[in-house]
Amino acid sequence: MSQAVLITREPVVNKQRSITANRLVVHAPSVPVAVAALNALAENWPANHTVFVSLGRLVPTAELMGWQMPANTMVEIPAPALAYEQTKALIPQLQEAGINLCLSWYQPGMQLPEGAEFRFVLADANKLPTPAGFPGISIATGLADLDGFATAVKNGYDGASGWFFFKGVKAAKELAPSHAQIVRLLNLVRNEAEVKEIEAALKLDVALSYKLLRYINSPAFGLMVEVQSFRHAVTILGMDKLNKWLSLLLVSASKDPLAPALMQAAIARGRFMELIGAAFVEKREVDNLFITGAFSLIHVLLGTTPEAVLGEMTLPEPIIDALLRGEGIYRPFLDLAIACERLDPSALSEQIAKLKLRAEDVSKALVSAVAFADSLQFG
């Protein structure tokens, strides 16, 4: 069996539709191999939210204690694994180490080990419509769309895990005026307009100026000095780099309650593409990879169609090829990013093979991208 470890991920949101955790599913041939892969990710680990860690279909055993678990880790215990003595022996070790537990694949009436405490319980809301009697905070899985989420919450679920919020958004035919203003701003930058002209456009919306400076001065950007104005930003960053950060303004423009979850997903995609694709494109194109990933969900964020929003923007042809035509040099990296969001390791393995990448490099880029997206404040 291959020793490659693949990691896929999905967000966990609460009833208010805010991200409360990131869920990583580790697909490995054995627990020791999974442990080695997880230990290798220590420097890149997302720290802003709790991280649920699932070993997929592996039976969790005491070998998992070889992982130097970050403080924000929560280990998933699949309900069927409770039939194994090795898993029963692991639970008190995790609890003694201060690691919270999450029970997945839960079924009502099942016998739980004495002394086992589960902070969260994941269950398929299609099979268990109501979470009555769950031994922990209930998290719905298996939701198809936003309507499914609304129903699950109405029936008593405390939150949900998955990408259901990508579906069920009603699309408008054209951009809202506030979104159109940001598109105009981006076009000015892309077309290398005079700084004073761009500054004038920014001054029409003070909130945009504030957001832009907050993003640029965030720890994720890593600047040694504080940027205090747009003109200062141009001096330090240059127009090409600034274009990437102005793109964040558009990604973060939605006022929908689910916007923060969508923003995290979009920016994580962009950062992942930037990290994994940097070795394949010229240096000046790396920011275009970020924009491709971030804009791959822009239509969902703004409640419109891809054609409506992208058709108004001055974007490089490779970005348009990837997002509207499903082709071109950036598309394989977007396909890889999307594969990381599915629970199917075979689909991810196929995309990794197409690009001739190493699985460990993809995992590192994935957790780094999630950490980066989480480090930005949306609001």
Rank of each mutant, 00 (worst) to 15 (best):
A125V: 00
A125H: 14
A116V: 09
Q107W: 10
S104L: 06
P113R: 02
Q111M: 15
G115V: 03
E114T: 14
G133C: 09
P108A: 03
A123M: 05
L112D: 02
Y106E: 00
E114P: 05
A123T: 11
W105V: 01
Q107D: 10
R119G: 01
N126K: 13
P113Y: 04
E117T: 12
L122I: 07
E114N: 12
S104C: 11
L122T: 06
I137V: 11
C102F: 08
E114A: 10
M110H: 08
L103E: 02
G133H: 08
L101C: 11
F134L: 02
G133F: 08
P113D: 03
A116C: 04
L103S: 06
Q107H: 14
P108G: 00
F120C: 03
L101A: 09
G133W: 06
K127H: 12
F118P: 15
G136Q: 08
A123S: 13
F134T: 02
L128E: 11
D124I: 05
N126T: 12
P129W: 01
F118K: 07
P108V: 01
L103Y: 00
V121L: 02
W105R: 08
F118I: 05
A116S: 09
R119M: 05
R119W: 05
G136C: 12
V121I: 09
G133V: 09
Y106V: 03
G115P: 14
L103P: 07
D124N: 14
F120I: 06
L128A: 11
E114S: 13
Q107K: 15
S104H: 07
L112S: 05
F118D: 12
P135R: 02
P108L: 01
M110D: 06
G133N: 10
G136D: 09
P108H: 01
T130V: 15
L101K: 12
G115Q: 07
M110F: 07
E114Y: 08
G136F: 11
P135M: 02
A125I: 01
Y106D: 01
I137H: 12
N126E: 04
G115D: 06
G115F: 07
F120H: 07
N126Y: 05
N100I: 00
S104Q: 10
G136M: 10
F118Q: 08
A132W: 13
Y106K: 00
A116G: 07
F134D: 00
N100V: 04
D124E: 09
F134C: 04
E114L: 05
P129M: 02
C102S: 14
L101H: 11
A125T: 06
Q111R: 13
N126W: 05
Q107Y: 10
F118C: 10
R119F: 02
G133L: 11
P113F: 00
I137T: 11
T130H: 12
P129T: 07
P129R: 01
P131Y: 08
N126S: 10
R119N: 04
Q111W: 11
T130Y: 07
A125E: 14
K127G: 09
W105S: 08
E117L: 13
F118E: 10
Q111I: 10
K127R: 15
S104R: 10
Y106C: 03
A116H: 03
P135N: 00
K127M: 11
P131A: 13
